[in-house]
């Protein structure tokens, strides 16, 4: 129990540092600007490894591990057959539903491994990978942390979550890309040492200028997919989980027999 809590703290801390790795351009001081660029780029893969180790080491039972492997494979397979064109990737649907059905901790690691597996297999490995993994992990965690609601509004809630996270993911990936894709001497680049709000305004302009065309379709796609498929797939997952319940209790067995 104690170990569990401590490792949750580690995950929180690593996530916090991860968040800084996305947002540093907004409030970086002028002195350490270029150091920050490279440092965060190098730190991110390390953070991803730390997270994977912390979640998996000795705490993953066989069944969870098998679910993880199989769900990651499904996600990556869907990506590989091109079920999604530009940005329309069913992978998000999978991470959200998986997180919802199996809980936040599972959602977190599912995000990490799904992204990694599909990148390894389809050749999408690059400096951006660790950033994508981190985002996916947060999204999976969030899906698991959504409040339990009545069945009738469960899907609409998930669909909203899917839409919001799609937009957020786009923004985060842009944020991560910002210092790399925008040359410093332009009017939409970040200014080291400037006010956060000022930088934020510049970022918003960059974000709208470049990526909105991808994010809105992705959000719509997520929503549709969740509304259309969420129910049957959630049911399948829950049925599968239920089949793994263990009860070894001699007294209980007798009672059950009597009934």
């Amino acid at each position: 129990m104690k170990k569990e809590r401590l490792s949750s703290l580690v995950i929180l801390l690593a996530s916090l540092i991860g968040l800084l790795a996305f947002t540093w351009p907004l409030f970086i001081s002028a002195e350490n600007d270029s150091a920050a660029r490279w440092l965060f780029l190098g730190l991110m893969p390390l953070l991803a490894i730390i997270l994977i180790v912390e979640i998996t080491l000795g705490q993953l039972d066989v069944k969870t591990l098998a679910f993880l492997g199989v769900l990651s494979a499904t996600g990556a397979a869907l990506r590989a057959i091109g079920a999604g064109a530009v940005g329309l990737e069913p992978i998000w649907f999978l991470i959200i539903i998986g997180g919802k059905a199996l809980g936040k901790r599972f959602g977190f690691i599912l995000g990490l491994t799904t992204m990694l597996a599909s990148a390894l297999l389809t050749g999408g490995v690059g400096p951006w990978l660790a950033f994508q993994m981190m985002c996916a992990a947060w999204i999976g965690w969030g899906a698991g942390a959504l409040p339990k609601v009545k069945e009738s509004i469960e899907l609409p809630l998930l669909a909203c979550y899917g839409a919001v996270t799609a937009l957020l993911f786009g923004a985060m990936m842009d944020l991560q890309l910002w210092p790399w894709i925008v040359s410093p001497a332009t009017s939409i680049a970040y200014l080291p040492g400037a006010e956060v709000l000022d930088n934020l305004q510049r970022f918003v302009l960059f974000h709208f200028a470049t990526a909105l065309a991808w994010d809105i379709p992705r959000a719509i796609f997520n929503t549709i997919l969740i509304l259309l498929l969420g129910r049957p797939i959630l049911n399948s997952l829950r049925r599968a989980i239920r089949r793994g319940n263990v009860l070894i209790n001699r007294e209980h067995a007798r009672e059950q027999m009597a009934v």
């Binding site: 998996t56 591990l65 993880l68 199989v70 494979a73 397979a77 799904t114 297999l121």
Partner: peptide
């Protein structure tokens, strides 16, 4: 070894991906 468990999950994933593409 610290990454072994995640490694197994990924090995499962990478092994299954071609199977699932076939399944689709």
């Amino acid at each position: 070894g610290v990454l072994h468990e995640a490694g197994v999950a990924l090995i499962i994933a990478t092994t299954l991906i071609p199977h699932f593409v076939m399944s689709v």
